[in-house]
């Protein structure tokens, strides 16, 4: 018995000794670890988390741009916001915009990428052409679209009339204005998604297609289902989330072309925020809208990281 306890004690003693030495050694390591993290952490604090906390704090005040004083008013801004019909219209329009533009850009981007990839000639020309709208300034392009969509002498209506179809006053009609903006949004973002899909397509090993062909996938659709689509999984997730976030941020076309009209039919979240914050100077209220906007973006990001965790095993 005593023998056993002796050996036990002996066994414990060195363990205790090491435990005593460990913290000193460990803390030195922790300090240097903190020191190494500091620059990145400080930058993140100053550039991201600080402003974010500022916006959230601002949303609980009645601060007006340029005002000398402000008061804490709790959730009153949010109460106003959720009671405001304009906010709900803006939210509904934004969601509608996202629901139309995201599938539109993703499907069109993938289709164009597949077409370019399957062709043999003029690949770089097509790539450049489809990428042009991404590089062009959207404000300038919005002006061009304004002319093209002009009810009387616009190109679009001219073509419709030429084909014997009825013309619309696209941006001035409540029933078409949002869809016209969606079309411009798709036109603008397709090139970006196409480039991402092209990069994804290039990285698919050619032998997988050959294996699929030998395994009996004789139609292009079967090979797409068996190889292309699953192998593009990670790219597609990324493209969907990025397109989603970018569509949520829609502002410039709305501001230049419609200013949210006619009768709020194209009012979107960021535009409402802009009007409240910089035209009516209700900074606190605008901050509350920003927080709502951030919640949606955060949701999308969470979905993305969830999907990324579940990602396929690539070898």
């Amino acid at each position: 018995m005593s023998d056993g306890s002796m050996t036990l004690g002996a066994a414990i003693a060195p363990a205790g000794a090491t435990r005593r030495t460990l913290p000193a050694h460990g803390s030195r390591r922790t300090y240097s670890a903190y020191a190494l993290v500091t620059p990145a952490a400080a930058l993140m604090l100053i550039m991201l988390l600080g402003p974010l906390a500022g916006v959230i704090a601002l949303s609980f005040t009645d601060y007006q741009l340029g005002a000398p004083h402000f008061a804490w008013i709790g959730l009153a801004n949010y109460q106003d916001l959720f009671a405001d019909k304009v906010f709900w219209t803006a939210l509904r329009n934004t969601l509608a915009y996202v629901v139309i533009v995201v599938p539109g850009t993703v499907i069109a981007g993938l289709a164009i990428a597949l077409l370019i990839q399957s062709g043999t000639s003029l690949r770089s020309l097509y790539r450049t052409i489809y990428f042009l709208p991404v590089m062009a300034t959207l404000i300038a392009m919005a002006v061009v679209w304004e002319f093209m969509l002009h009810p009387q002498f616009g190109l679009v209506n001219g073509m419709l009339r030429g084909a014997g179809l009825p013309a619309f006053s696209w941006l001035q009609d409540r029933s078409t204005a949002l869809y016209a903006l969606c079309a411009i949004g798709i036109w603008q973002a397709v090139g970006f998604n196409m480039v991402l899909f092209l990069a994804g397509l290039v990285s698919i090993p050619k032998q997988l297609y050959e294996a699929a062909e030998i395994d009996g996938a004789s139609s292009g659709w079967a090979r797409f289902r068996l190889v292309t689509w699953p192998m593009l999984g990670p790219v597609t997730t990324f493209v969907v989330v990025i397109s989603g976030i970018r569509s949520f941020q829609v502002f410039d076309t709305v501001h230049v072309l419609t200013k949210g009209g006619p009768s709020k039919s194209t009012e979107v979240l960021i535009h409402t925020m802009y009007t409240e914050g910089f035209e009516f100077f209700r900074s606190g209220y605008a901050a509350a809208i920003t927080v709502v906007f951030l919640v949606f973006v955060l949701l999308l990001t969470l979905i993305k990281s969830r999907l990324a965790d579940r990602g396929v095993h690539y070898t």
């Binding site: 699929a212 004789s218 068996l226």
Partner: peptide, 18 residues
Amino acid sequence: PSARNLAMVFQSYALYPH
């Protein structure tokens, strides 16, 4: 190739990773 009814084993195995 799909109609020739031959099977092929590739150097990289070409298994579908997903």
